[in-house]
């Protein structure tokens, strides 16, 4: 385990070290104090623990690395992640997992607005609740919410699957509740297991997806544009 103390190391040195880190290496980042752009652009299958709060874009564009944040994460945690996993032990601010294309993002607490905005293949599991406009323009991948969802869930959705256990304050344009298929149940069960969620089962969730009515510009959809 290699320790980097942000009280004595600057951001450039931290990211330079982590980006050059070898597969299988393990790192611990002390005193992150909410700094932005911590552990971004990692390329190897390594483990990084950020021991405290992180600012914007923690673990942004992650590839392969397993990053754990022992605290809250600011806006855009794991934005555009390609693969690997990011685990936030506290809350995540808005736009968590924005445009992420792969990997697994787990948020133990709540996520703010626009969780999974424009997501492109990532799997996101939120133990708590998500804010408004979550999965906005979600293209693919899965968003699992063990708590509640805010207003306009899945607005202008493409092909992302959304699973919510609690209440949904409102569905966005073109998002509808759909029957849970056997395939959905398998996917959901697998995600809950990968995220280490043992206190709920797929049967507790409802499934939401795109009604695909906005896929083509049409006069009858004018109010939704």
């Amino acid at each position: 385990m290699q320790i980097i103390d942000m009280n004595t190391t600057d951001l450039r040195a931290l990211n330079t070290a982590l980006q050059a880190g070898e597969a299988g290496s393990a790192w611990s980042v002390h005193n992150p104090a909410g700094r932005h752009a911590l552990a971004v652009g990692l390329m190897e299958d390594m483990t990084v623990t950020i021991d405290g709060h992180a600012g914007y874009y923690a673990a942004g564009m992650n590839q392969k690395a397993q990053v754990t944040i022992n605290g809250n994460a600011g806006q855009g945690v794991a934005e555009n992640m390609m693969s690997g996993a990011v685990h936030v032990k506290g809350n995540a601010s808005s736009s968590a997992g924005a445009t992420a294309q792969g990997g697994l993002l787990v948020i133990e607490g709540d996520a703010g607005a626009r969780c999974g905005i424009s997501m492109k293949g990532v799997d996101i599991v939120v133990r708590g609740s998500v804010g408004h406009m979550s999965a906005f323009m979600g293209q693919s991948g899965n968003l699992v919410v063990c708590g509640d969802a805010g207003e306009a869930l899945g607005d202008s959705l493409y092909e992302t699957r959304i699973f919510v256990r609690g209440t949904v304050k409102g569905l966005g344009a073109d998002c509808e509740e759909q029957p849970m298929t056997e395939q959905d149940r398998t996917i959901l069960a697998g995600l809950l297991e990968r995220a280490g969620v043992t206190d709920c089962t797929p049967a507790d969730f409802r499934r939401y997806g795109s009604a695909r009515t906005l896929y083509h510009f049409h006069v009858d959809n004018a109010s939704a544009y």
């Binding site: 951001l11 736009s95 924005a98 626009r114 202008s156 896929y215």
Partner: peptide, 28 residues
């Protein structure tokens, strides 16, 4: 499908957030 792209960035708005975004891109 007829594809629409967003008019704002999904994870930042305004110059204060843009500064942080630029820092991230430089760090990567």
């Amino acid at each position: 499908i007829d594809q629409r792209s967003a008019c704002r960035h999904p994870d930042w708005t305004g110059p204060d957030d843009l500064e942080i975004k630029i820092e991230e891109l430089r760090e990567i």
